[in-house]
Design a protein around this nucleic acid. Structure first.
Lengths: 187, 187
DNA sequence: CTAAAACTGTACCGATCTGTCAACCTTTTT
DNA sequence: AAAAAGGTTGACAGATCGGTACAGTTTTAG
């Protein structure tokens, strides 16, 4: 069991779905762009949906690993790391292939609330929120659960403001807001 | 020129696109669900894309009219109205047919940054931001442009947290954050 | 009342959709 | 050396996609 071809497929499919959308990307396009035969694809994944789910799983891993690593490189204390989140988001927004959050897009395309794609998206968001909450607890900040929820709201808002509205300042706007949340006495 | 049928089509198409997605909704589905013949549709709109754009135009009008009206009913002073935004969003989130922001979804499905759908989405967001900015100016708050950008980030974030993550508290979380932005001395 | 305008259903076009099939290579295991 | 496993191509279903053609019916306006 040396699934290098399968991994290659998921990797490339992830990039194409991210750049091109899920429904808008046909299997024939995947064949053309990955160089992997359709038969092989359907040997590894019973349906297109299974492939999408595998791509999202990989995306979750890659994105969270990258995010945590960059945050921990950028700042040393828990409190600084919460703020560093927005610097790291700013890096992401500035990268050439930024196309918004893959899980927001996935949730936009799959309407059924119980769809596995939706559940995976919710889990991804939940895991990031838990990470922020952990930092807030380590920093000894009051009401870490509420604070983490607010930080996540700023994060999602910054992503949308950048992607949909084309804002160039969203990361720093959100960071300034976060600074006030950290410094103000909590209600 | 009494375009009641055309208006009816756009209205119904808007609801279907919102609930079902753009690419996922075929013209045949529109025919079946609206009771309007395909021939008529293509007499009013040259392409599906034109119909989508008309639906988004209507959505922009309906949503902004509703938002402003509800805000102005809910609070009297500009400062209170900024905060009332989040109460009104909370109403929207709690409504049975809430499916996220139509323009975020549209931007998720149409990748090309220059696509008219994207431009329309950006304009919609811009108009709401200008409204908040005007309230901030009327309230005499410092740095109304920055503040409006941050309020909008909280708004978009609350929408995503509710729709994607399934948060029940996003509207009030965002409102609390907004209260701190309004009360803190601006950097 | 009549004629234009608007709307209707149905059948169809070529392209594309997800998914399958059989036949043939290449590599690894035995 | 041969069998098994996994890869390949390419053609092909059957459904659906956006969009059109056509002939008939309903609504509206003078």
């Amino acid at each position: 069991m040396r699934p290098t071809k399968r991994d290659e497929l998921v990797e490339k499919a992830l990039a194409i779905f991210y750049q091109n959308g899920f429904h808008a990307t046909g299997m024939d396009r995947l064949v053309a762009d990955t160089g992997i035969s359709k038969t092989s694809m359907y040997k590894h994944f019973r349906t297109k949906e299974d492939l999408i789910l595998a791509a999202l799983t990989l995306r979750d891993k890659l994105f969270r690993d990258w995010l945590v690593q960059r945050i921990e490189e950028a700042a040393a204390t828990p409190r600084e790391r919460i703020l560093a989140l927005f610097d790291v988001l700013g890096e992401w927004f500035a990268s050439a292939d930024f196309r918004g959050c893959m899980f927001i897009k996935a949730s936009a395309e799959f309407q059924n609330h119980n769809h596995p794609v939706r559940q995976q998206s919710a889990e991804h968001k939940q895991l990031i929120q838990k990470y922020i909450q952990k930092l807030a607890e380590q920093a000894g900040l009051p009401q870490p659960v509420n604070l983490a929820r607010q930080i996540i709201i700023l994060k999602e808002g910054a992503i949308v403001a950048t992607h949909v509205s084309g804002s160039k300042t969203a990361a720093s706007d959100a960071k300034e807001a976060a600074e006030q949340l950290l410094s103000s006495p909590r209600s």
